[in-house]
Design a binder for these strands. Structure first.
Lengths: 343, 343
DNA sequence: AGGAATCTTGCAATCGTTTGCAAATGAATC
DNA sequence: GATTCATTTGCAAACGATTGCAAGATTCCT
C-alpha cells in the first residue's frame, strides 16, 4: 500500500498553525510568507512554501475572508420574472454566464450563482448582498425588478447590472442599445418591402420593450401602421403553440416579423413553414442576439447581433472599478445588423 | 429627505452583537433565536425576530460558516479539456447547470461555479475542495481527468461527478448509459438501411468514447465494417470546417452518421445539404442529447435523449446523501431513442 | 566597539457566529 | 417555604487567518 504510506507519512496539516509548528515559526509568519509579503526572510519563506506544497496546504478561505472582510467571490444573480421556468437555460443568458465566468476567473474571482424568483422573495437582492459571502454582485437581467434594483443601488455600490439603460437611472448597467437594435431590425424589414410589422415576444421586460419601441419608432417615422405586439413566453414548449396561434390569426395580415430573440425567431421560422408561408418571400423575419442557432436555421437568420463577450468584459471591468471605489457610468454597447437570408 | 431620515433613524445594525444590544440580551441568545432553536423563550424570540426584520439584519455567512465548519455552498466545477474555448457554453452542460442550480436552491444550497483548465493547473480539484468555501463538489464532465478524479475520490467523500460509468471505478458518478445510447443509435441507422457507419466527434472524452464503442458493438455484431471515427472539435466555428472536410473526403462512402452531440448533428446537417447529400435518403443521421435544437432542424433530428433534469436531480440527491454520511452507488440513467426524420 | 537603522519575527487582538457549560430564573411539588 | 426540576439566559472559548505593534536579530556606520 504505497499510496497509504505516502499519505500517513505526512502529518495532516490543515491550519496555518499546523504548518507553523512544522516550520518552527509562528502562525503570523506563515501567513505573511504565503501571502507573499516582503516582510519575511527569503529563506524562511521558501521553506514555508516548500512545506505548504508538500502537504498540499491551502489556507481556509472562510477564515481569511472573515478577517479581511472580503471573499474573492462575486455573486451572479439571475432574477426570473413571470416566465419562471426554463429562463435560466435561455441560450443568451447562459452564454453570457459562460463569458462572465471566464472573465471573473482571469481576474482572480470566484463566481457564486443564484437564481431567484422575485415574486416569492421580495428580499432577493438584499439577502444576497447582505450574506457577507460576496464582494460584489452582477445582476443578469432586470426582469421586472427595475425599481427594486434602483433602491438597492442607492445604498450599495458594488453592483453592476446587465440590462437596458434608461435616462437618469441610478444603477450602473451594461447592455446593448436595444432601442437602436429595434430600429435596425425594422429598417431592414421595411427596406425589404415589409409594411405591416409585428413584434414577436413579451414586451414586459425592459429590454424587449426597448426593442419593440425601436421598431415602433421606425414604423411611425415611415408612416406605417403600428407594430403589432405578439406576446409569447420564452420557453420553447409554450412558445411554439403561442406562435402558431398568432400566425394562424395574423399570419396573412403581416409581412414583417421582428422577433425579440433568435430562439423565438427560429421557432417562428418552423411555424411559418408549417403554415405554408415562405421566408423571406411572404414574410420577412429578423431575430435578435445572433446566437449560434441563427446560422443554422434554414434559411439562415438575419438578426441583430449583441456582442456577448464584450458585455461580459464590460460587466466585470465596471464592477472591479466600483470595488476599487471609482464611480462609473453605464456602458451601452452598439448592436450590429447581421444580414443573412430571412430579411 | 424622507428616505435619508428613514435611514438614519434606524441605528445601523450589522452584527449579531448590535442586535443583541438593541434587544437587551446577549449575542448568544440572538444567535439561538435567529437559528430557531427551541431553547429560547418565545417572547424574546419574537422580539428579536421583529428587530432583525426591521433593521434588515442578516447574519454574516462567513463567520457562521467558519464557526460551524460548513458553508451551505456546493461547488460546481467544469473541467475544460483539450477543447478549451467555448465548451462551457455547450448547450448540454449549460442546461444541466441550470437544472443543478434549481435543484440545489430548493435544497437550500448555494452554488459556486468554477471553470478550470486542468492542463494549466494540475491542482484544480484539490484547490477547490481545500478552499474551505464549499461543503461538497459536483464535477461536470470527466473530461480527460478520470485518474485525477479517482485519486481525489479516495480521500474526499463529498463529491459527485457527471460522466460515464466504468466498471470498478471509485468515484460516484451520475450519467447516461452512453454505450447503450450508442447501440440504440447504430441500431436505428442500420434498421433504416445504413451499412457503412461513421461517428462524428472526438472519441477522446470518456462519454463520447462510450457512445462510439456502443455503435461499434452493433456494427461488429451485425458483421458490418468498423464504424469510422471522424474527429471534430465541439465549438461550432471549428467544427463546421472540420465536418465539411470529413464529408468531402468520406461523404460518398458512408451512409449513416452517428453524431456525438445534437449540436454537431445540426452542423452536419447543414454541411450535408451544402454538399448536396439528402437526409435521410442518401445519408441517415442520429444525434445525441435531444436538445431543443433537435426539434428545429430540417428535417428534425432523430436523436438519443438524455434526461437532463433527472441527471441534475440525481447528482444533488446523491451528493446530499454523501454529505449525510451515506455511501452511494453510481447512478446510470437510461437513454431513450427519439425518432424524428433524419433516420 | 557602540549605536543607529533596517530586517524579521512573535504576540495577541480581531473578524462575527456558534455552542458547551454553568448560572439564574421561574414553575411545580411536597 | 424549602426543594427539585425544567426553562432561559449569559459567559467565554472556539473556528482559522490576518495584521498593528513591539521586541529581537542583523547589518552598517563611524
Amino acid at each position: 500500500m504505497a499510496a497509504s504510506e505516502d499519505r500517513t507519512a505526512r502529518t495532516t496539516v490543515r491550519t496555518i498553525t499546523d504548518l507553523a509548528r512544522l516550520a518552527g515559526v509562528s502562525p503570523g509568519t506563515v501567513s505573511r510568507a504565503l501571502a507573499g509579503k516582503s516582510l519575511v526572510n527569503t529563506k524562511t519563506r521558501e521553506k514555508i512554501e516548500a512545506l505548504a506544497r508538500e502537504h498540499g496546504f491551502r489556507p481556509n478561505q472562510m477564515a481569511s475572508g472573515l478577517r479581511r472582510q472580503k471573499t474573492g467571490v462575486i455573486g451572479v444573480v439571475i432574477p426570473l420574472g413571470h416566465d419562471t421556468r426554463q429562463q435560466i437555460s435561455d441560450s443568451f443568458f447562459m452564454t453570457l454566464l459562460g463569458f462572465l465566468a471566464d472573465e471573473l476567473t482571469t481576474h482572480g474571482y470566484d463566481l457564486m450563482l443564484r437564481r431567484v424568483v422575485p415574486e416569492d422573495d421580495a428580499d432577493w437582492l438584499d439577502r444576497f448582498i447582505g450574506s457577507g459571502m460576496i464582494d460584489g454582485v452582477v445582476v443578469i437581467g432586470q426582469s421586472d425588478q427595475f425599481e427594486r434594483i434602483e433602491e438597492v443601488a442607492d445604498g450599495y455600490r458594488s453592483m453592476v447590472v446587465w440590462g437596458n439603460h434608461q435616462e437618469g437611472q441610478r444603477h450602473c448597467v451594461v447592455g446593448t442599445d436595444n432601442r437602436l437594435g429595434g430600429r435596425l431590425a425594422a429598417e431592414r424589414l421595411i427596406a425589404g418591402g415589409a409594411r405591416r410589422l409585428a413584434f414577436l415576444g413579451d414586451t414586459g421586460p425592459m429590454e424587449f420593450a426597448a426593442r419593440f419601441a425601436g421598431a415602433q419608432d421606425v414604423a411611425a417615422r415611415m408612416g406605417l401602421p403600428d407594430v403589432q405586439p405578439l406576446a409569447t413566453h420564452l420557453s420553447p414548449d409554450r412558445a411554439s403553440e403561442e406562435i402558431a396561434g398568432h400566425l394562424a390569426q395574423h399570419g396573412r395580415s403581416i409581412d414583417g416579423i421582428f422577433a425579440a430573440t433568435d430562439t423565438l425567431a427560429a421557432l417562428c421560422l418552423t411555424e411559418l413553414r408549417a403554415q405554408g408561408l415562405s421566408v423571406p418571400d411572404d414574410v420577412k423575419l429578423v431575430g435578435f442576439d445572433d446566437l449560434p442557432i441563427a446560422r443554422q436555421t434554414i434559411p439562415p437568420l438575419t438578426t441583430v447581433r449583441q456582442d456577448i463577450a464584450a458585455g461580459a468584459r464590460g460587466l466585470v471591468d465596471l464592477l472591479l472599478r466600483r470595488l476599487g471605489g471609482e464611480t462609473t457610468e453605464s456602458l451601452v454597447l452598439p448592436p450590429e445588423l447581421v444580414v443573412r437570408e430571412t430579411a
